[in-house]
Amino acid sequence: MKKILGFIAFSFLLSCSSSNTTIVNSWRDPNTSLVSEQFKKVLVVALLKDDVTRRVVETKFQEYNPGFKPSYNFLHKGNKDMTQEMLIKLLNLEKFDGVVTLRLVDTRVETDYVAGMNTSLYYGNPYYNSYGTMFGGWYGYYSPYYYDPGYYVENTYYFIETNIFSLKNNNLIWSGTTKSSNVSGHIDETAGNIINEIVTQMRKDGSLPPKK
């Protein structure tokens, strides 16, 4: 039987090595683990105003495992006025046992310092380099003149809250907030990074078993 750890963990072991996303905080239901829930079909709901971005994020989840189902196939303008009871009934009829929601909770512009580079760190000997030749010694000798100073840049950071609900008991079992930069033009990559950070944090807090 597939569980949510089968949905998430496997694919993100293969995720990209660099990430523009970090986990800020998280919470878990101390009486529930994702292993015990045995999710087989999970609805992914990206609560975003832009429909194109919503589809990109939700589809990205499904790329990792078909057990994730984008909400745009079930929740759309035609049924946007449904009550909570009607929504839960619809999800039960479609045999969903879990829901993942993502929403933007904050956007901040922060000033970051980018360190410069001093080439003398790499060419410290002015007469003899590590390859046993004399060529390049002059470069190390004069490298202080080629020092690249640091500088400050403004980056926009997006704070995304991810919640995981169990439909069996209709309760929240895990919640976490991630901080992402350089989102524009890299929505699908950022979505992958967010889930990677979620899985890492879930392993730390005991929601998922440790990586073997």
Score class of each variant (00 low, 15 high):
F12T: 07
S18I: 11
L121C: 03
S166I: 00
Y141A: 15
L5E: 15
T59V: 06
G176K: 05
V114R: 12
S120F: 08
V56S: 05
T156F: 00
Y127G: 10
L91A: 03
I173R: 05
L34M: 15
I8F: 13
L43R: 00
I187M: 13
G140C: 05
K77T: 04
F74K: 04
T83G: 01
Y113C: 11
T83K: 00
L75T: 01
N118I: 02
F135A: 09
M1T: 05
I23P: 11
T119H: 07
S175L: 03
L75I: 01
G185N: 03
W174T: 01
L90G: 02
P66V: 08
A191N: 11
S19V: 05
Y113I: 05
Y158G: 14
S130F: 03
K168L: 04
V153F: 02
S19L: 03
S166P: 00
E161V: 06
S17P: 09
V109S: 13
K49G: 15
C16M: 10
L43Y: 08
G185T: 06
A9R: 13
I4C: 13
G150H: 05
Y151F: 15
R55P: 03
W174E: 01
R28N: 02
T162E: 10
M82I: 00
I88V: 02
N31E: 10
S130T: 06
N169R: 12
V57A: 13
Q62N: 06
E161P: 03
F12K: 11
Y146C: 04
G6R: 10
N163H: 02
M86N: 09
S130W: 01
R54G: 07
E110L: 09
F96E: 07
D112Q: 10
L93E: 12
A115F: 05
E63I: 06
N155C: 02
T59H: 08
Q201C: 04
Y141P: 08
D106M: 08
K49R: 14
Q38D: 11
R54H: 02
M134G: 10
M202G: 12
N171G: 09
T59K: 04
E58P: 00
V44P: 01
K49A: 15
E94V: 01
P149N: 04
A9D: 15
V153A: 09
T178Q: 01
T178L: 00
K80E: 10
G192N: 14
N79W: 01
G137K: 04
N65L: 07
K69Q: 13
G185Y: 01
Y157Q: 07
Y131Q: 10
I23K: 13
F135I: 05
T162L: 12
T22W: 14
L121I: 09
N169K: 12
K95H: 07
E94F: 06
T119I: 07
F74C: 04
V114C: 07
F159R: 00
T162S: 14
K211N: 09
Q62V: 04
D106Q: 15
F74N: 10
P144H: 06
E37F: 06
T21S: 03
A115Y: 14
E189D: 14
I187A: 11
L208G: 05
T162Y: 08
E85C: 08
S11L: 10
G150P: 06
T32F: 11
Y123I: 05
D51T: 10
S11I: 07
N182Y: 01
V109I: 08
W27Q: 03
T53G: 09
P66L: 09
W174S: 11
L91N: 03
L48F: 13
S120Q: 14
P30Y: 04
F159K: 00
K212F: 09
